[in-house]
Structures are given as C-alpha cells and as structure tokens.
Amino acid sequence: MVDGSRERCKTGIAGMDSILDGGIPRGNTVLITGSCGTGKTTLSLEFLVHGAIMGERSMYISVTEVPEKLLENMIDYEFFDKKLIDEKKLIFVDLQEIYVKLGLEKLEFTLEDINILVEQIVKMVKELGVERLVIDSITSICYRLTSKEEIREFILHLGKELSELGCTTLLVSELLPSAAGYSQYGVEEAIADGIILLGNLERRGDLLRTLQVIKMRGTTHSRAKYVMDLTSIGILIAPLLKGGSVEVT
C-alpha cells in the first residue's frame, strides 16, 4: 500500500501502473471505453491474467463472445499459462448461460430483472472469492435496459456491492467513433470510479492506438495521452509525441 492511500490493484501492464501511481485503487469500478478495435478486450484480459498470475482469482464475464473464442486469442500471449484456467485462478463465464439459468432471456429487463442479475454476479464473486472482474461489455447489458434511470441503478448497485467485496471491476464500454462523452448512454461515465479511454489518433494518414486515464478516484494519476502497442508480451505504452496528430472522429 502507498503511504496514507488506498491499497492498489496492480494491472501488471507495462507502464500502466506508473500512470496510475501504483495501480487501480482496490474495489474501484472502472469503465474501459473506446470504439471497436482500440484494444479494450485485450487490455481487460491482460489485467485478469496478471491478477491470476499474482494469485488473485480473476473472472471474465463475456456477453458478446463465447469464452472458447477468447481463449484461442489468449494462447498467443507469452505470459498466459493454461494452468491458470485449469486451477480456476482465471474463470470465464458466458452471460448467455446465466440469462438462461435465471430465466432472463428477454429483450428488455425490468428493475426486478436487473436486481436478479446483479445479485447473481455478486453471488459468484463472493462464492468464488473473485478479486478481479471484467464484464465485456456493459453496453450489451445496457441494451436491454429501457431508461437511463435503469442503467444508473444497475451500475450503481453492481459497483457498490462489488466494491464492498473488495473486487476491482473493469466494465468494457463500447463507444461509437463519433460519440461525444465517454460512454454510449452518458450515464456509465458519471457513476464509474474511473474511466480509461482507448482511441485512435491520426498522424498523416496513419493510425496510432492511444490510451488516456480520464479519471480514477482514490489516486493521483497522469491525464496525458499515451500510444499503445498490442504485442505477444502484452500491452506496451509510450508517451504520445505532441506534434502533428489529430483525433479520429
């Protein structure tokens, strides 16, 4: 623990923990937001794998992709060891199966449905002793919610329960390239403890992947924009050079 400050959950991603002054404050709910192809899932998976390697039970709740497909992509990572899954340090859950189990196979959720879903996620976190959780994506769940109030209630309720359990949570949020703000519904960003924005930056016709920590409660952090590379040894981060780039819209 950094003197006088909250305990940190180290991401294990090269450069990221320095940007966050030691890591994500434990128990925070963080929005990982960006348009498609910006590296949201990769960053989230790396966060979980490093956690599992450090002995923290980590869980990935997949809404849009089947776990088998995600696992195929992870085999390319040199730091990934299949033993983490065999030993249940790293757990993959298909949300569709939970929907079936809970009888939530419907297009629109009521407030009661939301509470049932949150309670189920919290129950799994509690029973399995999960310390790191990723929900990919929160946007896909929010599609089934009919109002901003419901989205707000869902994220608030989930974040509060998980925080009380000391579980550090990444909520993957899909953003349209032309969107203003940091989330699709404009509610998620206000409730989350942290926002990590992934994007594309154009320099003379070439696209650079970028990463920026917009906010993170409980820590002082860099708010600068960084350039990111997705490699077989994990995500690498370098400072963005200041001259000559424009934001892609």
């Binding site: 003379r204 590379d229 490699t231 040894i233 690498l236 370098a238 400072p239 050079l241």
Partner: peptide, 20 residues
C-alpha cells in the same frame, strides 16, 4: 511499422525487443 511518421511505434517495437 506502417510509416516513418509513427515515431512512438519505433520506441514501442524497440521496447518489445528489449523486454523479450
């Protein structure tokens, strides 16, 4: 690297090699 204008990616590729 796609282009010599992507200077940050030069740093990142060399960091990759240095770490690996």
């Amino acid at each position: 690297i796609e282009s010599p204008t992507m200077l940050e990616n030069i740093i990142l590729k060399v960091e990759y090699l240095t770490r690996k």
